[in-house]
Amino acid sequence: MRAFERLLSATARRVLAWSGRHAEPSRRPWVDALGGELELVEGGPARLLWALGGLSIVCSTRRTTLTRIWRSLPGPLRIGVFGIALAVVGVVAIVWSNVIVPSHESDDEYTTWYLVGYLVLFAYFGASGFLAAWTGSSIRDAALTGAITAVISIGIALVTFIVIDNLFLDVVMQQPDKANGFAHSGMTSQRDYVNQGNFALPFVLLTVASIGAGCGLFGGLLAHLLGRRCAAAV
């Protein structure tokens, strides 16, 4: 039992040492202040709990810095930055996998990866809402950020697909899924075939916006919940 107490006390000291190293220089004395009281706290669990206050100081520091940077960005950029960042990655990945190193395997081979990809996308939309709310935006704006992130990123990705399909039609039509789909479509023009679903783009974006808003809302709620605990409701 005493060994366990000692272990918790040692962990508490390590937590404070870590906090001291990672806190903003101006706030390090506050971590030292927690350390100055630590020896008065009785019991290993209570000491560890006390030392966790150091993480709060680090957390509040980082949040302040992040908020400052975030607020210095122009409004439109602030709300669209997540979508633009994801769109850049998406465009590179789409051009790479469809034109530069085109895959000759069916999409069915990658079902699991597609599923993982969708989950990552949803998490990203949620993260955009989380970061927006974490840096001071309302929950409504967090949902809006999620929706805009989704529309910008998926919209640019879909437009990239349309452009590639038309510019590199001969390369794209070598994909097994597209070749089979065209063969069974009864259509005579490959170009008409690859463009047949484009009219649905606005509806797709509307759906994507709803999903993004939902994810952003969830992220925003999470940020407010964590922020309240982290910033100690100051």
Partner: peptide
């Protein structure tokens, strides 16, 4: 006032009390 005394008297955890003091 000492931080630990305030924490005990006010029943506030250090993670709540110290950010308030910092601010």
């Amino acid at each position: 006032h000492y931080g630990y005394d305030l924490s005990r008297r006010l029943r506030l955890r250090s993670g709540t009390l110290y950010p308030i003091l910092v601010r």
